[in-house]
């Protein structure tokens, strides 16, 4: 279908974009890479009055080193992120998970910030950002910049904490130092399909076993969720496959997975346990 008509603004700076968004009112949408929003417009599931297109705001494509963290600009494309030397060195979980997102053509347009602001619990990157304790930077014309942790950014099903006049400008991702292994395990039926369940994990091994484990789940509720019981039960345990399997039994605790065409909520709970064991084992080996 052809999208419903909308007003269109193509700012070149963050200031212009914020001003355009504020002027456009509550029924405006921010267009990042358009790989989720354009299909919604075409299917007329979304029909905003105005689109603020960030495609030409070059400053938002930057990925920079901030010492103990990386700052990934919201408009960095998936293609750019998965090849970026800083991301590969300091946030390899993001590089690995991004390589599983959609397909090459979609990754050329789709953006890191757009995928996060879309807040789809079946998307891969929200769980990754949650596992890495990422911090989200949003800017509005009226109130300037504010930052919020990933756990506060994802509010509900496809709902972020962004106010209608706010633009996500980037995400601060603390660097993982030495000793960390990471893995993103995704289960889907066909190439480029959404994850039925996904598991993002990072494990820090020391001489006495697991020093810290972070596990976040894709599509196990209306928002990405941390498997806190798994993380807690692994602390100080030997980094063995048996220990990972045992801890993974608690992966679905505290979650509320959806049931749909692709699987019941019970099946998703089962998948979460199996995939968490696999992800932990792969991360600890990496």
């Amino acid at each position: 279908m052809i999208p419903a008509a909308f007003d269109y603004a193509r700012p070149t700076t963050v200031e212009e974009a914020c001003a355009a968004l504020a002027d456009a009112g509550e029924d405006a949408k921010v267009l990042a890479g358009g790989q989720s929003l354009m299909p919604l417009l075409r299917l007329r599931l979304a029909y905003p009055d105005a689109l603020i297109d960030l495609d030409r705001v070059e400053a938002l494509r930057e990925i920079r080193d901030e010492g103990d963290a990386l700052f990934i600009g919201a408009m960095a494309t998936h293609h750019q992120v998965m090849r970026d030397p800083l991301v590969r060195e300091h946030a390899p979980l993001i590089a690995k998970a991004t390589a599983t997102v959609a397909d090459p053509a979609v990754r050329h347009r789709g953006t890191f910030g757009g995928a996060l602001a879309h807040a789809d619990p079946a998307g891969d990157l929200p769980a990754v950002a949650l596992a890495l304790d990422a911090e989200f930077a949003a800017v509005s014309a009226e109130r300037g910049e504010r930052r919020m942790p990933a756990a506060e950014f994802f509010v509900d099903w496809m709902t972020s904490a962004l106010e209608p006049d706010e633009i996500l400008v980037g995400v601060r991702v603390p660097k993982l130092g030495a000793g960390w292994g990471v893995h993103y395990e995704k289960f889907h039926r066909t190439a480029q399909a959404w994850a039925i369940v996904g598991v993002a994990c990072a494990v820090r091994r020391g001489q006495d076993g697991v020093e810290e484990a972070r596990v976040a789940l894709t599509n196990m509720g209306p928002t990405p969720v941390r498997a806190t019981e798994v993380e807690r039960s692994l602390q100080g345990r030997a980094a063995s496959e048996d220990a990972f399997k045992e801890a993974a039994q608690r992966a679905a605790e505290g979650t509320s997975p959806p049931g749909d065409l692709h699987g019941s909520s019970e099946y998703r709970a089962h998948l979460a346990r199996v995939l968490t064991a696999r992800a932990l084992t792969a991360a600890a080996a990496g």
């Binding site: 279908m1 358009g34 299909p39 075409r42 299917l43 090459p104 053509a105 979609v106 050329h108 347009r109």
Partner: peptide, 27 residues
């Protein structure tokens, strides 16, 4: 398709592949 799935409409935009059903002409 109408869902960015099938890739039949793939073209190169400034040398890289994109699905032209998911890009606006103004872009």
């Amino acid at each position: 398709c109408d869902t960015t799935n099938c890739g039949a409409c793939t073209v190169l935009l400034d040398g890289v592949s994109v699905k032209s059903c998911s890009v606006l002409a103004v872009q």
